[in-house]
Amino acid sequence: MIEEIRRKSLHSNSFVRMGIGDDAAVLRPRRGEELVVTTDFSLESVHFAEFHPSFSVGYRCLARGISDVAAMGGRPLAAFLSIALSPKWAQNSAYMRDFLRGLHALAAQFDVVLAGGDTAGAPGPHTVADVIVIGAVPRGKALLRSGARPGDRIYVTGTLGGAAAELEALRSAPESFRKAKPNGTHPHLFPQPRVAVGRRLVGIASSCMDISDGISTDLRHLCKASGVGASLDAERLPLAAGATLEQALHGGEDYELLFTTSRRVPRSLAGVPVTEIGRITEDKAVRLVRDGRQKLLRRGGWEHLKERA
């Protein structure tokens, strides 16, 4: 298995001078750039389940990290995979082979090199994957959560709630999704990181993050980092086909970009729809405006320790 991983990763880009095959990778950033680094666990029974196609699991493991780099305005360059295999995965090479195919499919889309990692046997019945993604941004230009100011407009890319809606359908009829492909119509199984949009937002957005835990939670994170509040217009939220307002607010894993700016932004950036959904306010409360009424926005997104306590 390790040899297969190495064989499938024997390419490089201008950033990865030496990848898999030595004790460590050798990386070479461009002059005038800074590196951004993110790491994400993907836990079986938490982030994926037995009903998820393993091709999708590999794709989604990498998509989470690439989306984080996109939210910083960066270009993803290299990934590192450390995976502890459950007995089921270790004894069935097809699981791991399809997992790697999914990961490499997304990596190829963004010219990301799998430059290293580690493998082990899991001490329990569940597979655990940790993916590190490294990207680059122009020096001093990384998009942060902490720059929003009162009066800024709040925008979101794409649509919301589609991942939660598809997950619900997947749970009910997993056999219907066995042949699903990353063709832009499966927001849960194959989310599309908004790398091109993130790079366009450098110098435009005052703050930015991706929506991984649900906008009700992630908007609160952005406001806390910036020391501000927000007023969110429920009627402006761009709902995905088949999604409810509750799924759009609290569903999570949409991996769209949530950003603020004092400027008006076009309705499309890099071919992706962009929607204004509210304003940043001076007080620190996060409110939802619905049917002309304003109330505090309930925090309903995913929080690992809270959910598992």
Results as ranks from 00 to 15, higher is better:
114 L>S: 06
109 Q>C: 01
93 S>Y: 05
52 H>M: 08
38 T>F: 15
55 F>R: 15
96 M>E: 12
117 G>K: 08
95 Y>D: 08
38 T>N: 13
68 D>W: 02
59 Y>G: 03
104 H>V: 04
81 L>P: 06
60 R>T: 12
33 E>R: 15
104 H>W: 13
59 Y>C: 04
66 I>K: 02
118 D>G: 13
92 N>Q: 09
71 A>M: 01
81 L>A: 09
84 A>S: 14
45 S>I: 07
97 R>E: 12
89 W>R: 14
77 L>D: 11
82 S>M: 02
74 G>Y: 12
33 E>F: 14
50 E>F: 06
52 H>I: 00
45 S>E: 13
88 K>P: 00
80 F>D: 01
49 A>W: 15
31 R>T: 08
106 L>S: 05
76 P>L: 10
53 P>R: 05
69 V>N: 07
72 M>D: 10
66 I>C: 02
83 I>L: 14
49 A>T: 09
103 L>H: 09
39 T>G: 14
102 G>P: 11
89 W>V: 14
90 A>M: 09
63 A>M: 05
73 G>V: 04
47 H>F: 13
101 R>H: 10
35 L>N: 10
29 P>W: 12
86 S>M: 08
40 D>C: 05
107 A>H: 07
101 R>N: 15
96 M>D: 01
39 T>Y: 10
117 G>T: 06
83 I>T: 12
37 V>Q: 02
113 V>E: 07
110 F>E: 12
50 E>G: 04
90 A>C: 00
46 V>R: 03
89 W>P: 09
58 G>D: 02
101 R>Q: 11
75 R>A: 15
40 D>Q: 02
119 T>N: 00
81 L>W: 06
94 A>W: 03
91 Q>T: 08
70 A>N: 05
87 P>C: 08
50 E>I: 05
38 T>C: 06
68 D>T: 04
38 T>H: 15
55 F>Q: 08
50 E>R: 14
116 G>H: 03
89 W>K: 14
44 E>P: 07
85 L>E: 06
51 F>T: 11
70 A>F: 02
78 A>Q: 07
76 P>W: 11
45 S>Y: 06
104 H>T: 07
70 A>H: 03
78 A>C: 09
113 V>F: 14
81 L>F: 06
91 Q>M: 13
108 A>P: 00
42 S>V: 13
44 E>T: 09
97 R>T: 14
50 E>W: 06
87 P>I: 00
35 L>W: 10
45 S>T: 11
118 D>C: 00
65 G>T: 03
114 L>N: 11
41 F>K: 09
47 H>V: 00
60 R>H: 04
73 G>T: 08
118 D>T: 04
66 I>R: 01
83 I>V: 15
33 E>N: 13
71 A>H: 05
79 A>F: 11
66 I>V: 15
108 A>V: 01
111 D>G: 13
107 A>F: 05
71 A>Q: 01
